[in-house]
Design a binder for these strands. Sequence first.
DNA 1: GGAATGTATGCTGTAGGCAGTCGACGACAA
DNA 2: TTGTCGTCGACTGCCTACAGCATACATTCC
Lengths: 243, 243
Amino acid sequence: MLANQGATAKIARPTTLRESVFEAILELIIVGNLEPGQHLVENELADILGVSRQPVREALQLLSGEGWVDLRPGHGAFVHAPTVAEADQLLAVRTLLETESARLAARNSDEPGVAQLRMLCARGLAAFESDDVDGSVAANSELHAAVTALSGNQVLAELTSQVARRVRWYHTPVARQRGRASWDEHTALIDAIADGDEELAAEVMRRHTEHTRHSYLEQRAGHGEESVSAPARRRRPRAAATS
Amino acid sequence: MLANQGATAKIARPTTLRESVFEAILELIIVGNLEPGQHLVENELADILGVSRQPVREALQLLSGEGWVDLRPGHGAFVHAPTVAEADQLLAVRTLLETESARLAARNSDEPGVAQLRMLCARGLAAFESDDVDGSVAANSELHAAVTALSGNQVLAELTSQVARRVRWYHTPVARQRGRASWDEHTALIDAIADGDEELAAEVMRRHTEHTRHSYLEQRAGHGEESVSAPARRRRPRAAATS
DNA sequence: GGAATGTATGCTGTAGGCAGTCGACGACAA
DNA sequence: TTGTCGTCGACTGCCTACAGCATACATTCC
């Protein structure tokens, strides 16, 4: 028998080429190297990534399934150009899903689960106060994921994470400016979950996500842009959502 | 200038082979010709459907995206075997999404929208009373889709329709036994939407979907089966959901 | 000069084929 | 009899090639 493989268990997962391509293209979209509406020519991507067209095609279809690209039959793939209205709708759905997650999390909360939430919250707050933006962002994502996991509803958790990932693309520039308040709200949320107060947890989460939504809309209101991800173009956003 | 082309505008949409394959395999799964857990060999499907492996592969990945099949890298595709717990979670999410849809529909309802709802409801009720199961089922789906469309939230509508489609697979045998009550609830729902009573519409929809969920769970409770779609195997279910 | 048509180019959709890999089965040894 | 190893078969993942179609441009006709 081999030695402890715990550390390698995760990377031992046989990763296919199309998944790598999926991640690579998604990164290009989020970073802004690929502009909204841009035509993604399969051959070009294949050449850039050093693979054939086949895994590129499959990756593009995966991306289409999550709403990152639009697939027009006979015309190929285009980077999805989100409108302000769509972003607003997405944020509304996010609020709905996460609010329910918080409610269920309060209902099903247990000792180790709450402990993990507090740990993630402490880590995120520490990262925020030491200006570690990446760390803060990562902790935020993990915290929200942990809440949905606590809900006990796997389907809800998957849907939520998928929506949250798309949301992160949109309001990335917004979130950083309200980082401190965000972490205070996280603390209140965890308290409510620990108390098993379903209604309070739901209300706190609802207000928490709506704050982000309103910040986003206010910022967008003045611009009057149709494509909401324009400011993310061309340069790598160092900060991401902390909602 | 040519004559009126309105009738041909719709079929002009270029449908790809992989979409046809997607529909075909989905049909095989829903009908029960493909049993949960069954290994879907690409070559076999390609032979059966008279196409090459490529569109089959792409269709399987689409199916995976919607949760119909599980893709294990290096092993291929397997028909998803849903558990009772998963079906329950799915029904819970469906309730959440449709309840919000109803609330928003009441908020945004307009004259033509309500008129369409009433038309669909009348058609469905007529079909039900004349034992036209297929017609009743179709009207039911269209009615729910129309409600989500009225919500004005496209993202919510897409998510809801996707979840609803999966739900239909599970509780197909359950729904027919409460067809009449279901249509009465539909009428109450439309009234609430027409009145613009958000809370009432939401509550009616919540109770409506929860009815289905409880019926489902009660039926399942006695069986103690792990795979919930077992009863749908091997023969074509003539009736489908009217929830 | 403008419009319609022919032509060229580039991309997608699909087919066929090859190598790598996983699992099953049987032989062999303890 | 049981555990282990090697071989075989089958299937997946990926690559290359071809056909169809749409678009853009050049050409010809009115």
